[in-house]
Amino acid sequence: MTTGKDIRKIRARAPLRLGLAGGGTDLSPYCEQFGGAILNVTVGRYAFASILPRDDGRVVFEADDIGEQDVFEEGSPINEGLMLHRAVYKRLIDQFNDGVRIPLTIRTTVDAPAGSGLGSSSALVVALVDGMREVLGAPLGQYDVAHLAWEIERVDVGLSGGRQDQYAAAFGGVNFIEFLANDRVIVNPLRISEAISRELESSIVICFSGRSRQSAAIIDRQTSGLRTASTATLDAMHQLKADAIAMKQALTVGNIDVMADILGRSWKAKQATASGVSTDTIDRLFETAHANGALAGKVSGAGGGGFAFFFVHPEHRFRLIEALNAAGGQASPVQFTPHGSEVWRFR
């Protein structure tokens, strides 16, 4: 059992991700019935967690990027405040420290707002789980960290969503991930050449369209369509799954034009899974993008706002970024990262 008396400063970070294809097929009950498939890549934006020892008996949660802090005195119940911090702390303490509290400050930041569509909330949970794993010496591998993060976020807290974000954040890199019945997940890292990786990275522009306030409602509508066996929703999900497989094949040979065709088809299928996936703002940005060199685009995540990303030939990337920014977006290049969640100690 850990008491916290000899804990050093612990840092953890987990990367955010772009869902290239298959997003939505990791939702229940689709993945249990048909098997889901997703192609994603982690990018150089992170959820950070610092876990610092305390000597006053308090447990303190701080989210610096949103300006929130919760302070719990020794012996007082931890039952309010920052729900993700609280849920991870309580779950890990109960499961791996016999429920004995450790006085800590857990301070976090995320390089994208909630509802960004980059899996920021799930990356935060992964970073928190991995950091607390280090504090407690819990015997958790990458699959364990990802599954526990999913269970905390989706079951303990009850937030709507799929499974890809936690596994992308835990493993990192370019992955083709299969989601099967009985919570079985297979992460297949793709070995692509450095030239293909650099060309793909240089062919993507991301653009923030505004914070999504609809993603949970969209996911709930998608899930409802799946549970009622809506033909439109099921057909769209089957198309998204097929697109993930086709996108993987195009990526392995570096055919960006084919990837763009698949992305455009997937965007249409994604919009058919539920209402509200696109918005007037997103539609305007897409019109601007297509008029300035974009081959295709898609909203990352559930939709309703957040980040969109576009494929573009690298020689036209600067023009596309300038046009999107002039149209009110927040556009930029993207950098891939091969690493998943990382933890280190520091005195």
Rank of each mutant, 00 (worst) to 15 (best):
residue 161 G to A: 14
residue 162 G to Q: 15
residue 162 G to R: 15
residue 162 G to V: 15
residue 163 R to I: 04
residue 163 R to L: 15
residue 163 R to P: 03
residue 164 Q to I: 13
residue 164 Q to P: 10
residue 165 D to G: 04
residue 166 Q to P: 12
residue 167 Y to V: 01
residue 168 A to Q: 09
residue 169 A to H: 08
residue 169 A to D: 03
residue 170 A to E: 11
residue 171 F to H: 15
residue 173 G to M: 11
residue 173 G to T: 02
residue 176 F to I: 03
residue 177 I to E: 00
residue 177 I to C: 00
residue 177 I to W: 05
residue 177 I to P: 01
residue 178 E to S: 03
residue 178 E to I: 01
residue 181 A to N: 14
residue 181 A to H: 15
residue 181 A to Q: 15
residue 181 A to F: 14
residue 182 N to G: 10
residue 183 D to V: 11
residue 183 D to R: 15
residue 183 D to H: 15
residue 184 R to I: 13
residue 184 R to S: 10
residue 185 V to Q: 11
residue 186 I to P: 02
residue 187 V to R: 06
residue 188 N to V: 05
residue 189 P to S: 09
residue 190 L to M: 13
residue 191 R to T: 00
residue 192 I to P: 01
residue 192 I to Q: 01
residue 192 I to Y: 08
residue 192 I to H: 01
residue 193 S to V: 05
residue 194 E to Y: 12
residue 194 E to P: 03
residue 194 E to D: 12
residue 194 E to K: 13
residue 195 A to N: 11
residue 196 I to Q: 00
residue 196 I to N: 00
residue 196 I to Y: 01
residue 196 I to D: 00
residue 196 I to G: 00
residue 197 S to H: 04
residue 199 E to F: 10
residue 199 E to S: 06
residue 199 E to A: 04
residue 199 E to P: 03
residue 199 E to Q: 12
residue 200 L to T: 01
residue 200 L to R: 02
residue 200 L to D: 00
residue 200 L to P: 01
residue 200 L to W: 11
residue 201 E to I: 07
residue 202 S to Q: 12
residue 203 S to C: 08
residue 204 I to V: 09
residue 204 I to Q: 06
residue 205 V to N: 05
residue 206 I to A: 02
residue 208 F to I: 04
residue 208 F to V: 03
residue 209 S to V: 05
residue 209 S to G: 06
residue 209 S to N: 07
residue 209 S to P: 07
residue 210 G to C: 07
residue 211 R to Y: 04
residue 211 R to D: 03
residue 212 S to Y: 08
residue 214 Q to T: 07
residue 216 A to E: 08
residue 216 A to D: 06
residue 217 A to K: 13
residue 218 I to G: 01
residue 218 I to S: 02
residue 219 I to F: 06
residue 219 I to G: 00
residue 220 D to M: 08
residue 220 D to G: 05
residue 221 R to A: 07
residue 221 R to V: 02
residue 221 R to C: 03
residue 223 T to R: 14
residue 223 T to A: 04
residue 223 T to Y: 09
residue 223 T to L: 03
residue 223 T to N: 04
residue 224 S to A: 09
residue 225 G to F: 11
residue 226 L to I: 07
residue 227 R to G: 05
residue 227 R to D: 03
residue 227 R to K: 13
residue 228 T to A: 05
residue 228 T to K: 10
residue 229 A to W: 08
residue 229 A to C: 06
residue 230 S to R: 12
residue 230 S to G: 09
residue 231 T to P: 08
residue 231 T to K: 14
residue 232 A to V: 12
residue 232 A to Y: 09
residue 232 A to Q: 13
residue 233 T to Q: 06
residue 233 T to V: 13
residue 233 T to C: 10
residue 234 L to N: 11
residue 234 L to G: 03
